[in-house]
Design a protein around this nucleic acid. Structure first.
Length: 790
DNA sequence: CAGTGAGCGAGCTTCCGCTTGACTT
């Protein structure tokens, strides 16, 4: 008998790996590796490693909605590496976030890497500290498949909505449009807000304020508004002969408490209000701070601070401001659908009040530091004083109010801004007063005021609203805004204010005088406006898919995802119940709805008597005189709408103005100066050269002087366009572009390496750069450009 | 910088959530 003795040959080329830990982010991997020691290798999956196919629906409707997952090409490298490492590892620790998406990442990893369940452990930790990670390691569990299924339901539902509704828009409205559970609601909010603004009727009223003299001077406001000018005049008339007496003085203590630490959405809001950052800017800067190790993770909906952070905050506050400024506080996350996988956004080291970096990084960091520290500080305490001043011959009363800050508390470092556009009334200390004091009226002024229309959304206030509705996630707020801007549903724009007259009635020394004053009102900066296409698409969706664009749709499906996560429902059952009626709506809409142009008839053209209408044309919104089907043999006339004009709200007069373009302004250097509106907006044409009008110019009202200014500006730019041309090689040039100098060679563009002076480039150096660099497309490579932007 | 959806027509576009670079005319 022969015995085979097994021989173990140690694999020399691949040293046995004891522990492989996989997390989502490389920055997180780096910090964790430090805590775990040499027996642990920590790698990152860079988020999800696979997804439904980009091109196809990727869901088998015949096989009970079976998802067809693919590893994206930009993830194959990561996946290959993890595969290799996991083969050699004794134990694989899946340490992605504890929420739905994190669980799915762990599951996809175990599927794709074909992990052996016996060697695979699922762990979660809530903060990145040695103790928390060690605790997690000693409490492993297995993958929670119910939670994974809730994620699959979420993913499949979003794919079905997006990929079945978008193509309807391509057919019925315009190619390349899109619809989705999140973006379509975001657009709806903006469209509906604009309609509220369009239909808003301003009301006027009179606010009455008095300046009184007792032992000292004080200001007071009338306790009621006067609704008409007559009423205001009457009151002032009465005040002429009235006596004023303090009837009551009340002092009341009050408190102010700090706001909770930052989440993604509150950081975006405050950075927008205090630093004027866009939502995208805030996230890019926060990402850099995170990668540099300055702050905790920036995509979170949690307001929780770790125990170590609380200790550190206390230490800083006590040291900097003293004991009585510290108050330990725990905050609860109230956002709908919050998943609390992370901490709030806070400085990693709270004893660092400032960091080095770009000015944006420094300012954002400081904001985060202040907010975090303030959240662990004492209340501010105030004393509010209210004095009532009676008018002897009227029931109305004047109210004077003042405020004293008794203890500043958290206000010492931070106060939260608000979105309110209304005028802030700063309250000061009142002079000493007591009931029975007689006062003289120095002057009493009634000022005409106006009711405020609802405000337009900023990027940040839209995020706030979406979060309140439970729509979208911290990782998607910024991309959602980019999407609705990219589709052209929404534009971010400024508006100049317009002059508004208002009446001021003054009573002084027994005389009543009346003045008219002018104020600028309605100016807007970086606000979100709906476009015509945004409004048309919104109306189309509201009509045919009311359920999808309902503000509560996400909240109601979230409930069902929770049921799935609890194991109370099969995910495919939930999807089936949604899909069956939804798909019927899809087919019905495809069959029955018309091509949508958003047409609106404004009236009749006084010259020809033909109807004037506005609608969406092939190249954007247009005004049209006459019917498209030529009854009298005459073709209709067309004119593009100007920026800021909406099909919804344009007047007949404004539309008729458009037909006056293009118009000749006059003569310059013996050639006509013509203003018109073309493919790229309003322009001035002179000597067959085109110059675009600036944002503040209006083609309807522009003067010849201004037009000449623009022509000269254009010439100046042309002169600066060419940095270098080479006599014997017309194919190679150094040009000045939007992003600085670049090399143009045979229709392609090439970047100039950093640190190179473009003005000193020789012909040979240019060709060298061209050779060593892949061409970025010039104007020809349209398809290549599209592919690159994925 | 013109045109203003059926003058012929292939093939393309699109979702939401996780994550970082690569790269922008």
């Amino acid at each position: 008998m022969l015995y085979f003795v097994p021989i173990f040959i140690p694999t020399l080329n691949t040293p046995m790996l004891k522990n492989l830990v996989i997390v989502e982010s490389p920055a997180k991997a780096k910090t964790i590796e430090k805590f775990l020691g040499k027996d642990f290798t920590v790698k990152s999956s860079f988020g999800h490693i696979r997804d439904l196919s980009k091109k196809k629906l990727g869901i088998d409707l015949e096989k009970n909605y079976k998802p067809e997952y693919v590893v994206n090409s930009d993830k194959s490298k990561v996946v290959d590496e993890l595969k290799k490492l996991s083969k050699d590892a004794e134990i694989i620790w899946l340490a992605s976030d504890e929420d739905r998406e994190g669980e799915a990442i762990a599951w996809h990893l175990s599927e794709v890497l074909k992990l052996d369940p016996k060697r695979t452990k699922r762990i979660v930790f809530h903060e990145i500290t040695k103790t928390a990670i060690e605790a997690a390691i000693s409490n492993p569990r297995s993958i929670n498949i119910n939670l994974v299924n809730a994620q699959q339901a979420r993913r499949v539902l979003d794919r079905i909505v997006g990929f079945e509704v978008s193509p309807i828009l391509w057919k019925k409205v315009k190619p390349s449009l899109s619809a989705g559970r999140v973006q379509s609601v975001a657009v709806r909010l903006i469209v509906e807000r604009e309609r509220e603004i369009i239909s808003f009727k301003t009301d006027n009223f009179y606010k009455v304020a008095g300046l009184f003299q007792g032992d000292a001077r004080l200001k007071a406001e009338l306790n009621s508004r006067m609704s008409t000018r007559e009423e205001a005049l009457n009151l002032l008339e009465q005040c002429k002969s009235a006596e004023f007496m303090v009837s009551d003085v009340t002092k009341k203590p009050s408190k102010k408490s700090p706001a909770p630490p930052f989440t993604t959405s509150t950081l975006q809001q405050e950075a927008s209000r205090k630093l004027s950052f866009s939502v995208g800017q805030t996230m890019t800067i926060a990402q850099r701070l995170y990668e540099a190790g300055h702050i905790t993770y920036m995509r979170t909906d949690s307001v929780n601070l770790s125990a170590t952070a609380l200790d550190a905050a206390k230490e800083v506050i006590v040291k900097e401001f003293g004991d009585k400024y510290h108050k330990a506080r725990a905050y609860k996350t109230k956002a709908k659908g919050a998943q609390e996988a992370h901490e709030a956004i806070r400085p990693t080291y709270l004893d660092r009040q400032k960091i080095s970096g770009s000015s944006g990084e420094q300012r954002l960091y400081e904001l985060i530091w202040k907010r975090t520290i303030a959240s662990q500080m004492s209340d501010a305490s105030l004393e509010k004083t209210t004095a009532t001043i009676d008018i002897s011959n009227s029931k109305s009363k004047f109210i004077a109010s003042g405020e004293v800050l008794l203890f500043d508390g958290f206000l010492r470092v931070y106060f939260e801004s608000s979105d309110d556009e209304g005028e802030e009334t700063t309250k000061d200390l009142l002079p000493p007063l007591k009931a029975g004091d007689k006062l003289d009226a120095v002057e009493i002024i009634a000022t005409e005021r106006f009711t405020q229309r609802p405000p337009r959304y900023t990027e940040a206030s839209l995020v706030k609203k979406l979060e309140e509705l439970g729509i979208g996630r911290p990782s998607t707020y910024a991309p959602t805004i980019s999407t609705i801007l990219a589709r052209g549903y929404v534009v971010k724009d400024d508006r100049d204010g317009v002059d508004r007259k208002y009446q001021v009635i003054q009573l002084k020394k027994g005389n009543i005088t009346e003045n008219q004053k002018v104020e600028v009102h309605g100016a807007e900066k970086s606000k979100l406006f709906p476009s015509d296409i945004g409004m048309v698409v919104n109306d189309f969706l509201v009509e045919h898919f009311p359920k999808i664009v309902n503000f509560n749709f996400t909240a109601s499906v979230e409930k069902e995802f929770d049921d799935i996560a609890m194991g109370n429902m099969e995910w495919t059952t939930m999807i089936d119940r949604f899909y069956k009626p939804f798909h019927k709506d899809v087919e019905k809409t495809l069959k029955e709805s018309d091509y949508t142009k958003g047409e609106r008839i404004l009236g009749k053209d006084p010259k020809s008597g033909k109807p004037v209408l506005v609608r969406i044309g092939r190249f954007g919104p247009i005004a049209q005189i006459g019917e498209s089907e030529e009854k009298d043999g005459e073709k209709p006339k067309f004119a593009s709408l100007l920026k800021g004009q909406l099909i919804e709200s344009i007047t007949l007069e404004d539309a008729l103005e458009l037909f006056k373009l293009p118009r000749t302004l006059g003569d310059y250097e013996g050639k006509d100066v013509v203003v018109g509106v073309g493919r790229f907006g309003p322009y001035v044409r002179h000597n067959s050269k085109f110059v675009s009008l600036k944002k503040t110019d209006d083609p309807i009202t522009i003067t010849i002087e201004r037009a000449i200014e623009l022509i000269e500006e254009g010439r100046q730019k042309d002169r600066e366009k060419y940095i270098k041309v080479f006599e014997n090689d017309p194919d190679t040039q150094v040009l000045n572009g939007r992003w600085g100098p670049f090399i143009k060679h045979k229709g392609n563009n090439y970047k100039i390496p950093k640190g190179t002076n473009a003005h000193e480039l020789t012909h040979d150096e240019c060709l060298k750069i061209v050779e060593n660099q892949p061409a970025t497309n010039g104007r020809k490579g349209k398809s290549a450009a599209r592919k690159k932007s994925k």
